[in-house]
Design a protein around this nucleic acid. Structure first.
Lengths: 363, 363
DNA sequence: CATGCCAACTTGTACGTACAACTATATTTT
DNA sequence: AAAATATAGTTGTACGTACAAGTTGGCATG
């Protein structure tokens, strides 16, 4: 009774009608009882009902047609259909293969009428949080994410969970945070590392060094494959020939380590190098040069990702393929399908292939 | 009279009040006459005034405070502050220096709380139109555009004019459409072409070929500088040594032309090449190799843009600098200033510098 | 002088009436 | 059978009254 005095009748009525929507009693398209009926039913005047209906109409719950009646609508549907903006968060924008991934996604999204929001994390977890906040500060249809330092856990988990709550579909590329259950497009990195090492072994190399990044799972998995190839071939791997490094170290640490390894006497130095990616491979070709060694005559090299660097550099690199543009296109296509058809997408695993060029000495 | 019957009084009243805003009679913060006063003044009931006020309040023009009165507001201000999304349209995304420009802009925009919309035109005027349409289909704070085929006129002029009408500030990078009056950040391409040619002339070359794109103004201006250097040095330029090409031809035409020029006998073939950009320079190093010529021993080369290709390739290219990342950062900063402070920005001209590496034979 | 109270004002809620405008259906007319 | 008309229902506009709730300033009281 006190309550009825305090809360205006038209608000009470509004809440009642909103609960009808929630319970499913009112569904989009169905006719709502007329103003007179509602008024009689709730013991209020028609004007009060009109006030309630007016607000609900403004908010998109109802549609009133003069002479015909009042009809229920679903306001949420319209919003999500209007947005058509998709975000992509990658570690880097300008470097290496990422422009190609972005390009593939952009072309696909544009052709389907979606706008592309781009943001990078510079492989920094704090910036990843900033990017997520910015992206979701306004309505968003979906999100493509390349995890930042995927091997080091996920401090921004709560943000990803809130994406799921908000019903914003997202998928991951290159790697996936183990804690999250979402579709992922990735390379079979373990197989890639395996194939790269095998290629050197098949060409007679037994002293092979591997250089891998350890703060993302791609590096960890490539190393895993590298080790499996040795195990299966019965070749022991000496620990000093496995160099792992972090993003922060990539500028000089692996280069210095390579110089250390390569300036040893011939019988001790490695004759083949498996490099985490082409970027590193190009830098290690330099390192070999500094030690007076020629590629591939003195040292063989296998890169990763088949980037433009692989063919632009003086020594054309033998490398493992990466789908790049293709991956961007497929990621965009799958995300659109998740948005528009609410379909479940399963993981896509690409198989890396060896591209033979000039950086491995043929036996 | 007829009119008063047709148009509802509350609509008439609403339009009247909106005109008060337009004329400045109502300004943000000022109190509006009370409902009773308005009712008396216009000869309508208080309920009718309430209906009008209710709609104006929903639309953000009025603020009603119980017991105090009704006050005017400015709804437009709020909208523009909310958007904070900036678009970038470039010709390419994945290639060459563009990722660096985008990266600079992205970093700057993210740090200022703006979201970045990215779209590319693939150097195609139709796609430029698509991109403009998509970008402006939802509220936008500003736009950074790299013109597509700037030397070939501007069929999408009407879109750019509508940007000005909507009050969306925009600026251009690399080049500007002659028909449009907007801030532009660009390289002094004429000076760049001049400096590149001068460098070869200073090193004793007199038979210099130039390869330039002709469908964008950057290429046209670089050629202009190339010619001025020859004129000032009193060296005639034979027409067959100036090769111009379009985007569509860039795959093989300049390469084939270079081979034609370089396989001539020594006294006829050019000893120095000025290339439109590093991408082309790398490809022409190949062409020289195919003719059995070494760079720089037999042929000298100057590239343009100081891209990653310049140092990644076997022959480290002597090239002209391009601000790239810096240009992206500055473009973003200027655009934000145009949006937030309505300041006028004048053109920014960067002066290209020569970077000496290994592709020009020292005399 | 400070405090509290009241009056006069504002907007908010709620009821009522009347008629206009529109839609759909049933009925009558052609 | 088709067309025009009437009718009953819907929402839209417009007026009116009454009181509630909140704000402000002036007045009386301590």
């Amino acid at each position: 009774m006190m309550n009825n005095r305090r809360i205006p009748k038209y608000i009470v009525l509004k809440n009642e009608l909103l609960s009808w929507f929630e319970s499913g009693r009112l569904q989009a398209g169905k006719q709502v009882p007329s103003e007179h009926e509602i008024a009689d039913q709730f013991g209020v005047s028609r004007q009060t009902v009109r006030q309630t209906f007016g607000e609900l109409e403004k908010e998109g719950w109802l549609e009133r047609i003069q002479g015909k009646g009042t009809f229920a609508r679903n306001p949420e549907r319209r919003e999500s259909e209007q947005v058509k903006t998709i975000g992509i968060i990658t570690t880097y924008i300008s470097d290496y293969i990422f422009p190609h991934i972005v390009r593939g996604a952009e072309a696909e999204l544009r052709s389907k009428g979606y706008r592309l929001l781009l943001s990078s994390t510079d492989n920094n977890k704090d910036k990843e949080m900033d990017s997520l906040q910015l992206m979701t500060s306004q309505p968003l249809s979906g999100l493509i994410i390349e995890p930042t330092k995927s091997a080091e856990g996920n401090p921004n988990l709560s943000y990803f969970l809130s994406l799921q709550e908000k019903g914003i579909p997202f998928l991951m590329i290159n790697e996936k945070y183990r804690e999250l259950d979402c579709p992922c497009l990735k390379l079979d990195d373990e197989l890639g590392g395996y194939k790269a090492a095998c290629h050197l072994i098949e060409n007679g190399h037994t002293a092979i060094a591997g250089f891998f990044k350890r703060d993302d799972l791609q590096g960890v998995n490539r190393l895993k494959g590298f080790l499996r190839a040795h195990r299966e071939a019965g070749i022991p791997v000496s620990p000093e020939r496995v160099v792992t490094y972090t993003t922060e170290q990539k500028g000089s640490f692996p280069y210095d380590q390579a110089v250390q390894l390569l300036k040893q006497p011939d019988e001790q130095r490695p004759t083949g190098l498996v490099c985490y990616n082409d970027e590193l491979a190009v830098s290690l070709v330099e390192a070999a040069g500094q030690c007076g060694l020629q590629v591939p005559q003195d040292v063989s090299m296998v890169g990763f990702d088949d980037s433009t660097l692989a063919i632009a550099s003086g020594v054309k690199l033998t490398t493992m393929t990466h789908p790049k543009t293709e991956m961007g296109i497929t990621a965009a296509r799958q995300l659109i399908s998740m948005i528009e058809n609410q379909t479940e997408i399963s993981d896509t695993i690409y198989e890396p292939e060896l591209v033979e060029r000039e950086s491995v000495k043929k036996q």
